[in-house]
């Protein structure tokens, strides 16, 4: 039997389809739009993908572990507003940033506590948090935007280093670190293990509760980080920040080959998935395609990417 000799990998190493799709998109829009293929445009795209990209890192891990975090957009806004409010009270901007990040981690800890410790359904818990935190955001700052941060803060989201946006460099570094963690450390074995068979991991004397808890804390932290970068890029904290961002994040993750029921997937895949959706959006924008149609196309793409795997029996 060929299955006997073929090695089996949990990391979806079949990124071929995704890469072909990405190249296809790049070539197609280069032909269709005169503005697409330019350094300025590319750097713009990279600059704008950072928030989704940052959240996609823990999201990939969480989905591999067989769970889901839908509260990321609300955590993003909540942390951003916490930071904004702290700053308005006269606290130093970097200290305020620390407060914002801490708020994110705390939200993640609440998710983790309910999901890991009390074994509540991840989707249910995070939907609850999604709704609750969004409400809390409006309560805290009464829906008005917070702005007027010092110039030094805008470095994070607006500064270019050697022609490349700083936040994009930050994102790539984060992806590289996370990729290393998900390949070389025992944490990765546990995450893939939990996604494939949680009970076996538990029966092997490993604290599943702790791993899940860490994952949701990470998700909170990275969502908050995304909030900080978004504030810096747009120069304001708004109550609507990050609305529906979870859909983009999950779409990128799934297009990247991560299995929705867990157990399989990779950060490299997610990164490619991310590039696919941002360049597609950008290209369609340049062609003047309405946002409504863009949604249709993106949805169809997701169905295609996931369906393709089903048909090939991957």
């Amino acid at each position: 039997m060929s299955a006997w000799t073929s090695q089996f990998s949990l990391k979806s190493n079949k990124l071929v389809v995704q890469l072909v799709l990405l190249i296809f998109i790049l070539v197609l829009f280069s032909i269709l739009s005169p503005y697409f293929l330019s350094v300025t445009n590319f750097m713009n795209v990279l600059n704008q993908m950072v928030e989704v990209g940052l959240i996609a890192i823990p999201m990939t891990m969480i989905i591999i572990s067989g769970a889901m975090d839908l509260s990321v957009g609300s955590i993003l806004a909540f942390s951003a507003v916490c930071m904004g409010v702290a700053f308005e009270r006269g606290i130093n901007i970097w200290v305020s940033m620390g407060i914002g990040l801490l708020a994110g981690v705390l939200c993640g800890a609440v998710n983790g506590y309910l999901i890991a410790r009390h074994r509540m359904q991840a989707i249910v818990v995070t939907i609850g948090m999604l709704v609750m935190l969004r409400g809390l955001v409006y309560v805290i700052n009464e829906g008005r935007p917070i702005s007027g941060f010092p110039d030094s803060f805008y470095f994070l989201g607006q500064q270019y280093i050697g022609g490349v946006p700083f936040n994009a460099i930050f994102l790539v570094v984060m992806f590289l670190i996370a990729s290393f963690v998900m390949k070389k450390t025992r944490f990765s074995t546990y995450v893939y293990g939990i996604g494939n068979n949680e009970e076996v991991v538990h029966y092997s004397g490993i604290s599943v509760v702790r791993i899940r808890f860490i994952l949701f804390m990470l998700s909170g932290l990275f969502s908050a980080l995304a909030g900080v970068f978004l504030m810096s890029r747009l120069a304001s904290a708004e109550a609507t920040s990050g609305t529906n961002i979870e859909l983009d994040v999950i779409t990128a993750t799934l297009i990247g080959g991560t299995h929705i029921f867990g157990g399989r997937g990779s950060l490299a895949g997610t990164f490619v998935g991310l590039l696919i959706i941002v360049f597609l959006r950008n290209g369609l924008n340049l062609l003047g395609v309405s946002v409504l149609y863009q949604a249709v196309i993106l949805g169809a793409l997701l169905l295609l990417a996931v369906g393709n795997k089903k048909f090939n029996g991957v």
Binding site: T185, T189, Y192, G193, N197, E199, Y203, I206
Partner: peptide, 26 residues
């Protein structure tokens, strides 16, 4: 249900309970 993680390799399954001892740091 409780003993093996089927899609994982023999090696990964064998090392699962003692990974901390088989690691340098993390």
């Amino acid at each position: 249900r409780q003993g093996i993680i089927k899609p994982m390799s023999i090696r990964q399954n064998l090392s699962l309970p003692i990974l901390p001892e088989l690691s340098k740091g993390i």
